[in-house]
Design a protein around this nucleic acid. Structure first.
Lengths: 141, 141
DNA sequence: GTAAAATATGCAACTTAGTTGCAAATATTT
DNA sequence: AAATATTTGCAACTAAGTTGCATATTTTAC
């Protein structure tokens, strides 16, 4: 897929979500598509090349993408939130995220999926489930 | 269990872990025992009564308790880390944490446990697994 | 195509979480 | 009770994330 193909795709995603097609949103979507794993605001900023956007803009852009379900927030050991494309995630569950305790890298383990937790008797209604895994990656094992 | 019984218990836990029995550690353990759910530094501070400890002390205390496995870090939707007693948690998995999307309260669902994820072929070694659930609590459902 | 309306962006200033270094205080060991 | 080991408080700092407002860009209506 060429660069402009990806950009076309980003534009379609934004249009379908009824969001303005702005350079910020397109760029950030491209960065996330190419990364294929959760990135923090800071990482997104560094990867968005010459047209660096303001920190506030990145946060607000992520918020808008989040509000229409184009991205997800992933919980990580790091203090900052990480964001990733909502690709292949269902309403109820995304793939588990694996963080290597040795090198610190995070991977999306799209091959794995755990059964959804069953609500306990007391009347809890479970809508979504997120799973975080820790251990050693192939390079560090 | 009376207040001093709890304190005795805290002292035993610290002694077994070969940590100095200081008023800060005892107090913070008591707060966590009474809470029964993950608390942030800020919440711990508010709940530790008259002998409020310095923010830095609380962080360092939690760190020491963490290092000997007496407490766990829980990931939450909030920006701050939350800590809880490592009660009933195995090496590999703790109970899932449930956060109500309506009222924001967090519960420890000790009745639920998911099977551990199986390592995918590629050579990942999974050591620990954490599960976060979202939905409606009995009061909000 | 252009003007008006709707929304996004940048900047400055702010809040909150968490950390570091160092001197003073407290806990344990002898 | 003194010496040693460890913890605590304070001040000052870093980094993540937010808010308000003026300006710029995108879309819509004509």
């Amino acid at each position: 897929m060429t660069k402009s193909d990806l950009e076309m795709k980003a534009r379609e995603m934004l249009k379908a979500a009824k969001l303005y097609c702005t350079s910020g949103r397109i760029d950030i979507l491209l960065v996330l598509m190419k990364a294929g794993k959760p990135l923090s605001q800071n990482q997104i900023s560094k990867r968005s090349g010459k047209n660096r956007f303001d920190k506030v803009t990145i946060y607000r852009t992520l918020e808008s993408l989040l509000s229409v379900g184009l991205v997800h927030k992933a919980f990580m050991e790091k203090r900052a939130w990480h964001f990733e494309l909502a690709n292949h995630c269902t309403e109820r569950q995304c793939h588990p995220h694996f963080t290597c305790t040795n090198c610190g890298d995070t991977y999306c383990l799209t091959e794995i999926s755990l059964p959804m937790a069953k609500s306990p008797h007391k009347g809890f209604v479970i809508h979504r489930q997120q799973v975080r895994l820790e251990g050693l990656c192939p390079a560090c094992a």
